[in-house]
Nucleic acid binder design. Structure first.
Lengths: 140, 140
DNA sequence: CAAGTTCTTTAGAACAATTCTAATCTATTG
DNA sequence: CAATAGATTAGAATTGTTCTAAAGAACTTG
């Protein structure tokens, strides 16, 4: 009857295995934090803080490594909205974001509510990888 | 009969005055580089390089200051597409961008060709400041 | 299940982009 | 043209991120 139910641990292990990553203690802890509740937007710094707060012993370097590995494996998506910081989104599906400039926080916009039309064909030799929409909002 | 025609200098001076900024030697040089030809996308580093190459004597700190002052004054627009670098766009009108990930370059998309529909109303107390669309393209 | 191989983690150093600071200099004003 | 408010500068400081080399943990094989 530990704090962490075995199923959640098993699920995390399987998730890592599927991504071709070894289920190490650190990765399991980070997976637990990232995919426990609903979707979330994390920075390396904030995830590291959350891990430490949860009593996990993980170095910042490992958090960076892990975030990048997860992104490469398609478990996370990187969101660039702020020159200062880099966000990682546990929602890898089709969607966009509000960015609250005053707070530096992100809010999801479902992909089926938003539509971008009239994108010209990219220049010769280039193909569209992804279209990102950022709705910058301010306190009014 | 200097290399820089007086009119361009006068125009630059007026542009700065209108923005409430003193027309100093450094700012005039940077204005000349930024607004000489067509629209361009610059990083602090690249503008500094261009200034030095043009024989201007400007420090990197001043380039940063100036870019931010110009942005605050509405002469430039900041474009965030890459976690690493920060771009400034001399085109402050309504438009969007292709971002060529392999090269780190930007290409303008006219604002009247592209349209974003279905943006939900922002959460209470927030109002939309701007909508940025970034079409990420890759070499195919 | 021991040995060996490979992959991970880690602390700290290194880095790159940007911002800060305090001294110096310059444009403007009276 | 002196006074003043604002601008510039070099270099230091900060910040977010990546690198490195050594120690540790997970998988594989015999």
């Amino acid at each position: 009857m530990g704090k962490k139910p075995l199923d959640s641990n098993a699920a995390a292990t399987e998730r890592l295995r599927a991504a071709g990553l070894r289920p190490t203690r650190q990765r399991l802890e980070l997976v637990a934090l990232l995919f426990a509740g609903g979707h979330c937007h994390m920075t390396a710094e904030s995830l590291h803080g959350a891990a430490r707060a949860a009593g996990a012993q993980v170095s910042l370097a490992t958090v960076y490594n892990t975030l990048h590995q997860f992104t490469a494996a398609g478990l996370l998506r990187q969101v660039v909205v702020d020159a200062a910081r880099c966000y990682f989104d546990t929602n890898t599906g089709d969607h966009q974001h509000f960015f609250v400039e005053d707070e530096g926080t992100l809010i999801d916009i479902p992909g089926d509510s938003i539509a971008v039309a009239g994108v010209p064909p990219p220049p010769k030799g280039l193909s569209v990888d992804r279209i990102d929409v950022v709705v910058r909002v301010k306190r009014s």
